[in-house]
Amino acid sequence: MIRVEKIYKQFGDLEVLKDINVEFERGKTNLIIGRSGAGKTVLLKILIGLIIPTSGTVFYDDTDFYKLNKKQIRKLRMEVGMLFQASALFDSYTVEENIRFPLDMFTNFTPAEKSNRVNSCLEKVNLEGVNNRYPSEISGGMQKRVGIARAIVMHPQYLFCDEPNSGLDPKTSILIDQLIRDITRENNITTIINTHDMNSVMEIGENIILLQDGHLVWQGSSGDVLSTDSGIIQNFIFASPFLQRLKKLALEK
């Protein structure tokens, strides 16, 4: 579980996040949604300590992240996996070396054990036989899957995904969403996803928060999205006439 308490963030005169209080539950896919500039990425970066909040704090279970020293932060981060928007795979490393990197850095596994762990992660993301390819030699969707494999190779307790569907075709997006949901459930980890993908919201949104102008304006599940009267969520999720018609059809059924 990750709990956010009274987070404020200001860049100069610009207030990006205002009094954010929320709990992201273990074993669930928690989604942060909102329009561009709403503060989603800043909130995600505050959660993982890449941006320091102006005030407020973040608890990883009972640990206050912002009271930890650098050494303790590094230790905690070994329990964290992250999938970046552009995958952030190391260009000069092969797929296998990319996934093995955290194992090389932090474990005393034998080469065979590392290899087994890498292969089992690649199997989980349905990507076998690409071990010796370089990131530039595989597609964007495959890079995302390698990114997920690298994020889960240390068996993290917390998984963060920054726009996991961006730049992917709808079918690959669905595969990535399912993969993240399955990993979350199987390993009972706390997963937080930053997305604008409405399909993800409806498919895997077990706990969704909507940010608008730096405020948390709505919280609920994908089921609540259909039934809520909140104008803010309706305007955001069902922004196009096509989606409005689709919603009407769903409710009629």
Partner: peptide, 11 residues
């Protein structure tokens, strides 16, 4: 390319 952030997050 966020490689440094990725490494930081790994610890």
């Amino acid at each position: 390319k966020e490689h440094i952030d990725a490494m930081e997050i790994m610890g």
